[in-house]
Every structure is written in structure tokens, then in C-alpha cells.
Amino acid sequence: MLRAVEAMMDEAPPEKGPRRFGNVSFRRWYEILEGRVDGLLRDCLPEALWQAWGGEEGVMMGEVKGYFMGGFGSAQRLDYGTGHELSFLAFLGCLWKLGAFGDGQGKEDGEVERSLVLGVFEPYLRVVRRLILTYNLEPAGSHGVWGLDDHSFLPYIFGSAQLTRPITEAEPTPLEGSAPGAPRPSDVVKPASVDLHRESNMYFSAIGFINDVKKGPFWEHSPILFDISGIKDGWGKINKGMIKMFNAEVLSKFPVVQHFPFGSLFSWDPDPDAAVPAQSVHLASQPSAGNPPAAGAGPGTAAPWAQATKMPGAVAGVPPGPGIPYSRAPWTGVGGSAPTMPRGGAPDTGPPPPTSFLRGKPGTASNQFAVTKAPWAKD
């Protein structure tokens, strides 16, 4: 099915010429997929299940198709992000709940689960990455440089799980440790190491795609992943942290879940016994129920950059804001110490900025900072 989806790109080649936003030929590709989705699902699903679910007119099949189509981006906005990735995960979840994977699903050996991750989800990511490159799809709701990844999140969960030490059913997810022979977390900043492991590990595959589409030092365009690469306790701790971050940054963010449809397979059922989510660095930027919006403010969530600039400890005597504390630039030492060379190497950071600037005569064009003087200003 995924091979058929990918082949449809040849029927809707991108329009030529440079474009700032997504290529409108993506809408043509999406129309082709939408017209063939029933046949794709019929071909890949057992006929008995197809008929039991009501065929093309069945309510449950309508939900399955909705999640499937939502997994390939927005034809209206010409973008792709973690919400679309979540939609495809829900598509697989629907098939799971309907018993499409046979008697093997849910068994202790986890063979079916591993097959779904490595045999379905990873090929899906390869199709999506080709879509992004072919049609120049914009990141959907990206946090920019302060986000984990412009387009995806789940490969970091699955990929770090691949590298976590083996566990048993009686043992909780390990908080530390790595599988024997696993690459070190710091290896993600080394292009040669990424190229070596990207074909066998989903975490390194996601990092490799970032390297394919972004230029410059890794710590500069992916500071969150750079900081994570410095964790010394192994992939077990990274995996547990990724799950917590996914819950906070994807499942708990209204701009993401506002597009997620609920129905009979995934219904909206508040749990009266659910614990209140613990406040974390990821949830800190959420609107607080105890702090009503200012007068005249409309409903909805604040822009992601509205609070992210309030870095903790940025100014002496000012209480830390709800920004991202671990996003400190690599050249900023703790407590104002001398700059350090980031992992993987980095260009010279240059001399520190001056503490004062020369000023000219008041009331003249020269009375401005020398570094910002307009080109037409005369001394």
C-alpha cells in the first residue's frame, strides 16, 4: 500500500520554479490518493474484515480512511507535522482495535508490534520524507529552532527504544542503560556516525533527514536534540524522556489535537480518575487555568514564541519564566564561564559583544550605536 502511495507522486510532478511555500501540485497528489483510498485499503485488508466493518459505506471504515488521509499532511495548508504523524499512528491503532493483524497481536513476544514499527511505520516515514522534499511541505505548527523536529516526533521514541537495553514484562521501562554495542547518544552530532546507523535505527534515520535538509552546525539548527545528545545515562533515559515530551508537546497541545477527529474507535471519554498532569518544562508554556487572560484577549493558545524568550535566570533578580531551560546556547558557560567547544566541533564564536558603544552629538545622525548606523548616516 505504501509503495502504491509513493508511486502516485510520479503522476503529480511538482510545478517548476522556486517557491517560498509548498508546491501546489501536492493538492493534485492528494486528490489522486483520495480517489484511490478505498481500493488501497481493500487490497491490503482481509476481505472478511472489510465486509464485517461495513465496506466503503461503513462508519468504522469512514473513520479508518479519515485517519489514513490525515497521515499525509494538509492539502489546504501544504504542510506536514506531528499531528499528521499522529493521525497515521491512529490509523494503525484502528486496524489494531479491529483485529486486522490477526492472533499474534498483543502476545508477550511483541513480534507483531516490532513488525508494525519497523515494517510499516518506518516505510511510512520514508514516503512522508519524499513528500516533504518533492512538494516542499512546510512544517505544521513548528516551534522553529526550539522544536525537537520540524516534522516528526515518533521516530525518536521508537529509535531510542531500539537502543535501550533489553527488558522483560516484569520490569518497567529502564531509566538508564543502553543495548550492548549501541552507539553513544553523542554520536548523533557526528555525520559519519549518523550515516553509519541511519539505515538500521529510526532515531539516527530521523537525524539523517535533518542533516539532508538543513545546513550549518547541528547545535545551531537543532539545539534541543543537541542537548539530549549530552545525556550520559544511556538510551533508556532518553526513551523515557521522549515519551514524556511527546505527551506534553503533542498530545497535550491544543494546536495539534484540534485537528484530531474523534469517533467510535477513538472517542472522547474524560477519565474522572485521571491524575492531574505534573507540571514540567514542556507543559510550562501552556495557558494556566488559574491565570485568566488579560482584558480583550481572545480565546485560544498563545503563540509559541510569546513565552519562550523568558529564559530562566536571564536577568539577575528576575524570576525565571516558563521558557525552555535546557535550550541554552552551547557557547554559554554556566555562571558566565568561558565559552566551551560544543560536541562535534563548532566554528569560532568570535570575541564577546562590546559592553558599550560610542555615541555622537545629540540631535545628529551620528548619535546612534556604531554597529547599527544607517549606511547613509554621515559622521
Rank of each mutant, 00 (worst) to 15 (best):
M1F: 13
A4Y: 09
P13L: 00
E15K: 05
P18C: 01
P18E: 06
R19E: 13
R20K: 14
V24Q: 05
L33W: 08
R36E: 14
R36G: 02
R36D: 12
V37D: 05
R42T: 10
D43S: 15
W53N: 05
V59K: 13
K65V: 11
R77L: 14
D79S: 14
T82I: 04
F101C: 02
D103G: 00
E111L: 04
L116K: 00
Y124W: 06
L131C: 08
L154G: 03
P155W: 01
F158S: 03
A161C: 11
A170Q: 14
E171R: 13
E171I: 08
L175M: 08
G181E: 01
D187M: 07
L196N: 08
N201I: 09
S205D: 15
I207A: 04
G208L: 06
K215T: 14
W219M: 05
W235S: 03
W235C: 00
K237E: 11
I243Q: 13
K244M: 13
K244V: 14
M245C: 13
N247T: 13
N247L: 14
E249H: 10
P255G: 11
V257K: 10
F262D: 01
S267Y: 08
A275M: 11
A284V: 13
G298T: 15
W305Y: 12
A308V: 15
P312M: 11
Y326L: 07
G336L: 12
G344K: 03
G344E: 04
P351M: 07
N367E: 12
Q368D: 11
K378T: 15
K378S: 12
D379F: 07
